[in-house]
Amino acid sequence: MWPKSITAFFGGLALSVSIMLSLYLLIPLAIDVKLLIGLIAGFLIWVGAMVYYFSYNSAKASGLACIKLLLISVAVNAFLFLTK
């Protein structure tokens, strides 16, 4: 359970930060609104990702799912930063 927990904690954190940055760049609202949405959405995504990673049978499967999601999210972020 420890490896799965570590994946869920850090994988969820990385994914939430990445998606939160994408949201910040995508949402056409005032900065203060985006900051609030980013903060709350960040935690919700983190916990959602943890639930998703813990739902796998093994730490390995959980880690692979984590990497897949992270790569997609980082690619979206890279695109958004480059086209900003």
Partner: peptide
Amino acid sequence: ALSGLVFNLAIVYQIAFVVFI
């Protein structure tokens, strides 16, 4: 749970915002 996170772990997103944005 959510408010506890906002008070105690917001630093994580604060760092991310300061660094990337």
